[in-house]
Computed example of a mutant assay.
Amino acid sequence: MSSPIRTASRLLLAALAALWVLPSPAAQLVRVGAAHFPPYTVRPESGADTGLLPQLVEALNALQSDYKFELVPTSIPRRFGDFKQGRVDMAIFENPGWGWKEIPHTSVDMGLEDAEIFVAQRIPNRQQNYFSDLAGKRLALFSGYHYEFANFNADPKVLAQNYNATLTYSHDSNLLMVLRGRADIALVTRSYLSDYLLRNEKVADQLLVSQRIDQVYHHYAILRPEAPITGEAFGKLLQGLRDNGQMLKIFDPYKIAIVPVSHAENAPQVAN
């Protein structure tokens, strides 16, 4: 006859064995919109995991197991519709002022800053005052971007008519237009120019980079109200990447500043 202690031990072992074979709770899938925005995301529709966003997603997935972040290709103009229709749960490297004001969302300060700068061909006697007045100059811009000098109006017709702008989907093309005299000024992100000059060292002396900044990109994550992760939870994950050094490792090589985070934005923004 078995003793009570032996019976209890068998039951405990059986319970532990059952727990051992039970699958762990599945991670909640968080779909992150990936629009071509170099160097943050580079042609995601091609399936190549290049750019800073794939690195950030990889670091987020390695940090924890409660959520699985997955990239979903979209585009600069299409991302708003994909967000509203629930095709993506989150847009990263955004700003609440870039067309999101009428869309219900929660914004999370990522504590990252980049800048949009002006670049011209370096020629004799051309100085920084060349960038102070854009009137009469031919601009090379990235289609879909919101520029402060244009009051954040991204309408291609407005930019072409009012600012003599040529719009492309390539910063490389815009810089080549400047180098070949087909445009007077290109606007590029500081992070992209840093990467471009590393890849094209021979042209560094041919470009005049403005001290004038069109705008500072203070990056936010934009979350759907129905997203599987809350703004507060996502903010804590970003803090975890700050603490373990991954944020600095990913963004510092591109001269993207790690700055203090404001926690006031982690509240739902509801369309009027």
Rank of each mutant, 00 (worst) to 15 (best):
M1A: 10
S2C: 07
P4V: 02
I5P: 01
I5S: 02
A8T: 06
L13R: 09
L13D: 06
A15I: 05
L19F: 09
W20N: 11
L22M: 14
P25W: 05
A26H: 00
V30A: 03
H36S: 09
P38T: 14
P44A: 09
E45Y: 10
S46T: 13
S46L: 11
T50I: 04
T50H: 05
A59F: 11
L60P: 02
D66A: 13
E70C: 01
L71R: 08
V72I: 15
V72C: 02
V72E: 01
P73F: 09
T74I: 04
P77T: 14
P77H: 09
P77M: 08
G81A: 14
D82C: 08
R87V: 13
D89W: 02
D89F: 03
M90P: 02
I92Y: 00
E94A: 01
N95S: 12
G97M: 04
G97Q: 08
K101R: 14
P104S: 14
P104E: 06
L112G: 04
E113I: 11
E116D: 11
F118C: 10
Q121S: 07
Q121H: 02
I123D: 05
R126M: 05
Q127V: 08
Q128C: 08
N129C: 05
S132T: 11
D133E: 12
A135P: 03
G136W: 09
K137D: 11
R138M: 10
F142R: 00
H146A: 07
A150G: 05
N151M: 03
N151W: 11
N153F: 06
N153L: 03
A154V: 05
P156L: 06
K157Q: 10
A160K: 13
N164D: 15
Y169S: 12
D172K: 12
S173P: 00
L176G: 12
G181Y: 08
R182F: 15
A183N: 10
I185D: 14
A186K: 14
L187Y: 08
Y192P: 06
S194N: 14
L198Y: 11
L198W: 10
N200W: 13
E201S: 12
L207F: 02
L207G: 02
L208A: 00
R212F: 12
Q215D: 13
Y220A: 00
T230C: 09
G235I: 02
Q239W: 04
G240D: 04
L241Y: 00
D252I: 06
K255L: 09
P260K: 15
P260A: 15
P260N: 15
S262M: 13
H263D: 15
A264K: 10
E265T: 15
P268C: 10
